[in-house]
Amino acid sequence: MEFHDIMHGTGLVFIFLGIVTIIVAGIGLFRLPDLYLRASAVGTSAGLGVASIVIGALLMDFSWLNLVKAAVAVIAQLLTSAVGSMAIARSGYLNNSAPAEITHTDDLLKTRRDRVTDPEAESST
């Protein structure tokens, strides 16, 4: 019975960690200045939050079948959140969403045909 209680408690800790991670990611959405910072900080933090909740649920209700399901869920969640963030950031860049002004180096700008420097002129379309 003792072992069961420990597993239950650890599961709760993981679920709360996941909730905190998602809440912080939500705060980050408001506080970070541009698309790329939001995508890099928030997209994957939210992925980690969901993964952590899945692991917590697994610990609270452990069986070998659930272990397999949780492993698949965590891997798929992390992969899709990574690919999703990349797709969003890349399409944002192709659509002339300029990085925030504190961005001090931008090597990708050199590869652009139009070399956008003024985001106001482009954002009207």
Binding site: Y36, S40, G47, A82, V83, S85, M86, R90, P99, L108
Partner: peptide, 28 residues
């Protein structure tokens, strides 16, 4: 994928021809 999964870094584009990864970093 691994670069994007690490919070704070994000792959924006790659160029296989020139062997370059374009990485957006948060604390550079």
């Amino acid at each position: 994928c691994f670069i994007t999964l690490t919070p704070g870094t994000l792959t924006l584009s790659i160029s296989r021809e020139h062997k370059i990864l374009y990485v957006h970093g948060m604390f550079v």
